[in-house]
Nucleic acid binder design. Structure first.
Length: 568
RNA sequence: CGGCCAGUAGCGCAGCCUGGUAGCGCACCUGGUUUGGGACCAGGGGGCCGCCGGUUCAAAUCCGGCCUGGCCGACCA
């Protein structure tokens, strides 16, 4: 490819909307442009990289025995209505109507479509196991799209679905996908880890996420040196002992003017937060639920959502709190709460003589004791894990890190096949429910993650295995006849040697071209200048670390081919 | 959806306070000089100043509403 005949609009300055390195660099290196909030178009160089990632994913899926199909992105409402997700997805789903006022969704995910396909066409035990996949666009009307392609409202996902006739078969299908995923992310040059995950709204049992390690990642992960790793949403926290001993004292209502936060109570009363009960009111499917936490602990909302067995979930408003507890925000407590569900964290059970809100303006209770003064419907793990919490596998202290979720695998079981009546006839001719797994990879996000892990202050640093061009030939002065002719010749010879090469034939100064090549992140740069050429020499510069070696002109093609992993 | 900030040329920004009909840098076009780390000189093109309304002789500037974007929070794969 000749630069003068390409469409690679690089940007010298950073667009103000971007904050994440990968987002900034994808804009600046001319990979993407935004068309609407959370929606991007792929420019030629970006599309080339996108297709490379897509190919890796496709190759490994096919190698694992999965069959590729392609679904329409518009899905008729009836399919989602069948599983109840037409309502459950809520405002996150893009919806549209045709001229007959029939409802459609732009598919946010395609379990229903695949399940429908399989139940209509595959009915015998002989047809299974089977795994189907597609690589296609998905739509989710995110509240807050951000980080460029990392969290868009339109994105490309590889989604695969396995159908088995036994639990054991599911485990085998699942294991194949896990192996394929490891190969995919390894080939993309990513430093990733597999973590235990919450199965979220999709439902199901065993679930793992593939996380790319990145400080900018949105997911928090607890990891242990023993190899244990879990998404914080799913990291189990054990009950902690109360710090104070002694028997229960009588309940006492005290005045706590202006002390509506844990901090102000600690300051005002000199009681440590670990001896307080914090009462958090949430709206769960139009009902109010109270979560009791120790004052120094944070509620993990995923755990709360699961404990409440709710689908819609969020903090209650000040009005809702007033209505449910009879008191204002900041003074809620478990004592005397009526007409709403109360769920407590495990550590609350161990509290003795704790401080809690009195559901009355500027009043608290001293010496609140669980069992005596209040009784929640259950004590469950609601706590947000912290660095230093014990590893559930080996007991050592875990540390926290951040990651980008690029893949998710799960053993769904029969949640979809049950409601959608996806069944097969076994060897005895009896009808049984299919057992499903589902497996997703965010293609755009995977590409962004590669940049997130492979860049420096000058630009992208593509790994050789995943790059837009292996090498760039840079003549320093295209008007210098010898320089230009050598560049043209090397360009042809390199292409003939199977090296994907960009010829920077622009009439620009050296520094200008170097800066652009470094921004684009092409792994090798062949620099041809008049002085070196007079000695029969050119330079090869590795993008990574910008290490330059001088080579003979007649050896450079072989050397570059070798470094690019191409045989001469 | 809440708090804060912002919307002026393709990109980055100034002008707004104190109203008088728009400017800088980069990029782009023409000519010339340059050519190993973002060149220089001269000339040039490009703007519904986010949108709608109000105040005023006059609005990028003041006022009101709306829309869009960013950060934080909430939510989410």
């Amino acid at each position: 490819m000749r630069f003068t005949q390409s469409f690679i609009p690089t940007l010298k300055e950073t667009p103000s909307e971007a904050t994440l390195p990968s987002h900034i660099l994808m804009l600046r290196a001319g990979l993407i442009r935004k068309t609407a909030s959370g929606m991007y178009l792929w420019l030629p160089l970006g599309l080339k990289m996108f297709k490379k990632v897509e190919s890796i994913v496709r190759e490994e899926m096919l190698a694992a025995g999965a069959h590729e199909i392609s679904c329409s992105i518009a899905v008729p409402a009836e399919l989602f209505q069948e599983t109840g997700r037409w309502e459950r997805f809520g405002e996150e789903m893009f919806r549209l109507q045709d001229r007959h006022k029939r409802d459609f969704a732009l598919g946010p995910t395609h379990e229903e479509v695949f399940t429908d396909l399989v139940r209509n066409h595959l009915t015998s035990w002989r047809d299974f196991p089977i795994t189907l996949f597609q690589i296609g666009r998905k739509y989710r009307d995110e509240i807050r799209p951000r980080f460029g392609v990392m969290r868009g409202r339109e994105f490309t996902m590889k989604d695969a679905y396995s159908f088995d006739t036994s639990e054991d078969g599911l485990r085998q299908s699942y294991a194949k996908m896990v192996e394929a995923y490891k190969r995919i992310f390894t080939r993309c040059g990513l430093d990733f880890t597999m973590v235990a995950a919450d199965s979220g709204t999709i439902g199901g049992d065993v679930s793992f996420e593939f996380m790319v390690k990145a400080a900018s990642g949105e997911a928090e992960i607890a990891t242990c040196e023993c190899g244990y790793a879990a998404n914080i949403e799913r990291f189990p926290c054990h009950a902690l002992e109360a710090s104070a001993a002694g028997g229960p004292e009588p309940l006492e209502k005290i005045s706590t003017p202006k002390m509506s936060t844990i901090e102000s109570l600690v300051e005002g009363l000199g009681i440590p937060a670990s001896r307080m009960v914090k009462t958090l009111l949430y709206r769960a499917d139009d009902k109010i639920v109270a979560f009791l936490m120790r004052g120094d602990h944070e509620l993990n909302e995923t755990k709360g959502l699961n404990a409440a067995k709710a689908t819609g979930f969020g903090p209650a408003s000040a009005e809702e709190i007033q209505k449910a507890t009879g008191g204002p925000v900041g003074f809620s407590g478990p004592v005397g709460l009526k007409g709403l569900r109360v769920i407590a964290d495990l550590s609350v059970k161990n509290l003795v003589n704790a401080l809690s809100g009195a559901n009355e303006s500027e009043m608290h209770y001293r010496n609140t004791n669980p069992g005596r003064d209040f009784e929640p419907e259950a004590y469950v793990d609601l706590r947000q894990g912290k660095a230093g919490d014990p590893c559930p596998q080996c007991g050592k202290a875990v540390s926290l890190m951040r990651g980008i979720e690029v893949g998710h695998v799960f053993q769904l079981g029969t949640v979809y096949s049950d409601v959608m009546q996806a069944r097969f006839l076994d060897k005895e001719g009896k009808s049984q429910t299919l057992i499903m797994g589902c497996y997703g990879i965010g293609v755009d996000r995977t590409l962004a993650s590669v940049i997130e892990q492979h860049h420096d202050e000058k630009g992208i640093v593509w790994p050789m295995e995943l790059c837009p061009f292996h090498a760039a030939v840079v003549p320093l002065n295209v008007k210098d006849k010898a320089v230009n002719e050598t560049a043209e010749r090397l360009y042809r010879e390199l292409e003939a040697a199977g090296v994907d090469v960009l010829l920077d034939d622009r009439d620009e100064r050296a520094g200008f071209k170097f800066t652009d090549m470094e921004l684009l992140g092409i792994p090798l740069r062949i620099t041809i200048g008049p002085k070196g050429l007079a000695k029969g020499e050119v330079e090869i510069t590795e993008r990574k670390g910008l290490v330059t070696t001088v080579v003979r002109v007649d050896e450079v093609v072989a050397e570059v081919a070798r470094r690019a992993g191409r045989r001469q």
